[in-house]
Simulated scan of single mutants.
Amino acid sequence: MPDTESAVPPTKEKAVYSRPVFKQRLTVNSLEAQRVTARIFERVQRALLSLDVILRIIGKQEAIDPLAAWISEQMAALDRDFDQEAARLKALMDEHGIQAMPTYTHPAKYEIEISSPRAAQFAGLIRKLDKLMGQMDTLWLNSVLTSQQRLEANYQWQQQLFTLAGRIFSMEYRARKAVYAQDKTAETEEPATPETQDGSEVSEEEVQDANGADEPV
């Protein structure tokens, strides 16, 4: 009688690589910044790590560099937009003699992992979004902005980060698909569609609809 246990082929263990990381505590006050952090930060940092490191190993660097440069440009552009809006809101606060910023009842603290330079950039964008939301809330509490103005502005700025994340997911998927097309089957598995941490597919609706009931009407 054959030995059934010995007949089972050994499974190939997945390679584990040691990589440098910074572990940081990210504290965010506003609901909008909390949504972005909780829903997409881990997925974004994994996609950015894939583009920065993994795809350079298994693919052609000259094909990956333009994608990485494009993402950096998108992040830099959004960073400038945040700075310009923050300066505008600060001038509005000064115009109305407003100096104090509100405290928040339930700030959230996240332990995040910075595994690539662009992940650090994205974390910086979340911090700037949080600051911007604080300025919006300050102007709203002082009756400078109406509730509708605050709601629409907060939603639109939050969506800037969700849209950027969607572009990053798409770029990383396309890069993996291009690598697979080069007959690299020995080094990488067939690319799956962009997915969430629990394995569910990232839909266009999820990227564009972050707020649910808070979406402006």
Rank of each mutant, 00 (worst) to 15 (best):
Asp79Arg: 15
Ala87Glu: 12
Asp183Met: 11
Phe82Trp: 13
Gln160His: 12
Glu13Met: 00
Ser18Thr: 15
Gln34Val: 04
Trp140Glu: 14
Ala77Thr: 11
Leu132Arg: 15
Glu32Ser: 09
Pro117Ile: 06
Ala213Tyr: 09
Leu51Trp: 06
Thr163Ser: 10
Asn154Lys: 13
Glu111Cys: 03
Ala33Trp: 03
Pro9Lys: 06
Gln135Pro: 09
Pro10Leu: 07
Ile40Gln: 14
Leu55Asp: 05
Ser143Lys: 14
Glu206Tyr: 13
Ser147His: 03
Glu204Ala: 15
Pro191Phe: 04
Thr105His: 03
Ser115Thr: 02
Gln74Asn: 08
Leu139Lys: 11
Ser50Trp: 00
Lys131Glu: 15
Val8Trp: 01
Asp81Pro: 00
Gln24Glu: 14
Glu62Arg: 07
Met136Leu: 15
Thr188Lys: 10
Leu31His: 12
His96Phe: 15
Glu111His: 13
Thr146Ala: 09
Ala87Ser: 13
Leu132Tyr: 12
Glu152Arg: 15
Glu187Ile: 03
Arg174Ser: 11
Lys177Phe: 06
Phe122Glu: 01
Ala108Lys: 15
Lys12Arg: 10
Lys128Trp: 01
Pro117Val: 04
Thr4Met: 02
Ala7Cys: 05
Ala213Cys: 03
Ile40Glu: 05
Pro2His: 11
Asn154His: 11
Gln135Asp: 13
Ala120Val: 02
Gln45Arg: 12
Lys128Ala: 10
Asn29Ala: 02
Arg19Gly: 01
Glu195Phe: 02
Pro102His: 04
Phe22Trp: 05
Ile71Leu: 11
Val16Glu: 09
Leu151Val: 06
Thr11Val: 04
Ala210Asp: 12
Asp65Gly: 00
Pro20Ser: 11
Ala38Asn: 14
Asp130Trp: 12
Thr105Asn: 08
Leu145Cys: 08
Gly199Gln: 10
Gln84Ser: 08
Ala213Gln: 09
Glu206Trp: 13
Thr185Glu: 07
Val202Trp: 15
Asp94Arg: 13
Arg43Ser: 13
Ser30Pro: 07
Asp183Asn: 13
Ser116Lys: 00
Ile126Phe: 04
Val217Leu: 03
Tyr173Ala: 15
Glu206His: 11
Thr27Ile: 13
Arg118Gly: 00
Asp3Ala: 06
Leu129Cys: 13
Glu5Met: 08
Leu141Trp: 09
Tyr110Ser: 05
Ile168Asn: 07
Asn211Tyr: 05
Gln61Gly: 05
Leu31Asp: 11
Glu187Lys: 07
Leu132Lys: 08
Trp140Gly: 02
Lys60Glu: 08
Thr193Glu: 13
Gly134Arg: 12
Ala178Val: 00
Ala108Val: 10
Arg88Ile: 03
Gly59Ile: 01
Gln182Asn: 11
Thr11Glu: 07
Leu49Lys: 07
Pro2Cys: 04
Asn29Leu: 01
Ala100Met: 02
Arg25Glu: 14
Tyr17Phe: 11
Ala15Gln: 11
Thr188Asn: 07
Ser147Leu: 14
